[in-house]
Every structure is written in structure tokens, then in C-alpha cells.
Amino acid sequence: MAEPTKGHLVFACGESLYGVAADLAAEVVTLPALTRVPGAPGHLLGVFAHRGEVVPVVDLLKLLGLGQGLEAWKRAVLVRTPKGALALTATRVAGVSVLPLGLSPLAADGVRAHLLGPARSPGGEVAIVECQGLFEHLSRVG
């Protein structure tokens, strides 16, 4: 019996590939100039207005403690959850790939508890971002 799969938007951020469920990935956008919000945590780079909505931009590298990130991100993947929208910075967007479901989180707690995988893809191993959980995590931290 074949494992259940789902289409994911796969993008690169730094060295690693991340995947977002295609139905949650609203759009791939080019990032405009961001408005900084004083008092916000470091991984929240700022906000930008998109279609009448204020979208916070999350630097995945900073969030995951993988580096200082870029000064000016060009691309971001706009993720829409029931409680709000998020933009995840992307170095490069690979496209839509079908990835298996039912993967385990990379860690028991912390931010990595909202990363599932790794899942195999033609571009390499992909960590699937569990968006709702990440959103809630960010709301807690913020």
C-alpha cells in the first residue's frame, strides 16, 4: 500500500531545504522594504503590507539558530494559517514537490518540534514546516 503523500512547496533557506504544505503556502512573494517593529524578537525581521494585511517576516536561519541570515532577503514564502499569515525567508524556491506525510518532528520541543522529516525529494532531504504549530510557537515567543 502506498504511503500517503502531499504536494509541498519546497524552498531553500541557507544550506537546507524546507517544505511547506502547498495548501498553506499562499504565495511566493518578492520582499519589499520592511518596517521594523521595536521590541520584537530578532528572528522577526519586520512587517510588510500585503493585500491589506500586515505580514510579519520570519528569518528561519535566525529562528533555527543556524546563522545571522541575510541583510536583505529577496524572496519569501507567504504562509497562511487560520490565525494569521507569516512570511518565511527563502534563498531560492525549488517548486512544488510531492512529499510523504506522517513524518516525525526533528525535536521533542522548541522550534524544531514544528519541523517534520526529513523527507526525501529530488533536490535532497527536506524538513517540512508544520505551519500551524510554528505560528503558535511564534505567538508565544513574541
Binding site: 504536494g7 512547496l9 502547498a22 495548501d23 503556502a25 504565495e27 511566493v28 512573494v29 518578492t30 524572496r75 524556491v93 517548486g95 512544488v96
Partner: peptide
Amino acid sequence: ADKADLLALNAELEGHK
């Protein structure tokens, strides 16, 4: 080209949806 790429990407995403 970048915009086209972005458009194509979003179109692919929408198509997949």
C-alpha cells in the same frame, strides 16, 4: 524573468492546489 519566474512559481502552486 524574475517576475515571470515568480508568476510561474505561484501559477504552479495554484495549479497544484
